[in-house]
Design a protein around this nucleic acid. Structure first.
Length: 355
DNA sequence: TGTATGCGAGGTCGCAGCAG
DNA sequence: CTGCTGCGACCTCGCATACA
């Protein structure tokens, strides 16, 4: 079951697409072209009644209505069927991240206040360059790249937290022992790595950042691989889809190109990566390209954080991939500018709040 | 000088697949 | 069937800085 915020943004977007005049009208009418369960309707009403996410709901509805009226969207055609991925998850590799499917053709990804592109096992990014891969489990990236520093930090941690009876290597911990470690961290209070361990953690960060960048660049020797990597980073897939949402400042209404269209529009130049370990292991990435029409060069930036998802040593680390370039400025993300026949096509101002 | 805002880092949660 | 783990998605705290 998605959380309240996700439910309300996705369903309010859907109601905007459905052709209803307003959010309240849509709730009263329950448009037949939106294919959700009675339970979901009740839930939506309940969340809206609290008023908690009202601004988000209005923004999402406006986005849906804009898409329905926009020439590059439904262009005013009435949708016959709107499906919501909702509590399901779309199976398969490299699936377009669609939350809504309109008439089995138009895919919409709802993205509200998020800059994260992916969150994967580090080996899947740096070694397998996000290729659709087997279900093989990946090793602990810290242990693999910085065995000595990883182990040293682990032993110092046990000593500092006064934990006894733990295995010699963090990889051998039982779930009860991981729970013990977690609660020892919690009891100690404070956030993150204790100050006494900071120097050792910094060593680990340095080695992991540098080596991750090296391995990634090694996997990206061929320019063709770099171009594919960029498409995968940016979630450019073989079908076009739409991103409707908001970032920190404003509404986002975009269409995402396919690689075919991307190549017709842009010329790929390079994808470069560089280590940047501050606070936690990090690798920055920068892609250079040129617009075919006019020859204007451009860059798109992002970074990868390699971090424990469930506290230090409690499970292998993950790679969180961020986009640092504004969505509107990403090559392949086409802003849906201009006029829409939708009932509400103003650009809403953000940040939200104040009531 | 107090207050708002942006941003980076640490953290939470739920689903899918799988092993037992 | 049940619990565990990896992964995807996102939250929230608190510090630094800008602003009134």
């Amino acid at each position: 079951m998605p959380d309240d915020r996700t439910t309300i943004t996705e369903l309010a977007t859907a109601l905007g697409v459905s052709g209803a005049g307003s959010l309240l009208e849509a709730l009263a009418e329950r448009p037949a072209n939106l294919d959700i369960s009675g339970e979901s309707w009740v839930r939506l009403e309940r969340i809206l009644a609290t008023g908690k996410h009202e601004a988000l709901a209005r923004a999402a509805f406006a986005n849906g209505a804009f898409f329905a009226g926009h020439p590059a969207g439904l262009d005013g055609r009435a949708p016959r069927l709107i499906e919501w991925s909702g509590d399901r998850r779309i199976p398969g590799d490299q699936a377009v991240p669609a939350d809504l499917l309109v008439d089995r053709v138009y895919m919409i990804s709802c993205k509200y206040l998020s800059q994260i592109l992916h969150n994967t096992a580090p080996a899947r990014l740096f070694d397998d360059i996000l290729a659709p891969s087997s279900q093989a489990t990946h090793p602990d990236w810290f242990a693999e790249l910085a065995q000595r520093q990883h182990l040293a930090l682990y032993r110092s941690t046990l000593e500092l937290l006064d934990l006894e009876g733990m295995p010699d290597s963090p990889g051998w911990m039982e779930s009860t022992q991981r729970a013990q470690l977690r609660s020892a961290f919690r009891e100690r209070g404070g956030r993150g790595m204790p100050r006494e361990l900071r120097a050792q953690y910094d060593e680990l960060i340095g080695v992991v950042s540098t080596t991750s960048a090296e391995r990634w660049q090694e996997a990206l020797r061929e320019p063709a691989q770099q171009e594919r990597m960029l498409w995968r980073l940016l979630r450019i897939y073989s079908a076009t889809y739409y991103i409707l949402g908001i970032d920190r400042h404003r509404t986002m209404r975009l269409r995402v190109m396919t690689p075919w269209e991307w190549r017709q529009t842009f010329e790929f130049r390079s994808l470069k990566v560089a280590p940047d370990g501050r606070g936690q292991p990090r690798v920055n990435w920068t892609a250079r390209y040129r617009e075919r029409a006019g020859g204007r060069p451009g860059e798109v930036h992002g970074h990868v954080e390699i971090r424990w998802s469930h506290r230090p040593f409690c499970g292998p680390p993950e790679a969180k991939i961020y986009l640092d370039t504004r969505h509107d400025d990403v090559p392949g993300y086409v802003p849906l500018d201009g006029r829409s026949r939708g009932p509400d096509h103003e650009q809403l101002r953000f940040p939200l709040g104040g009531g």
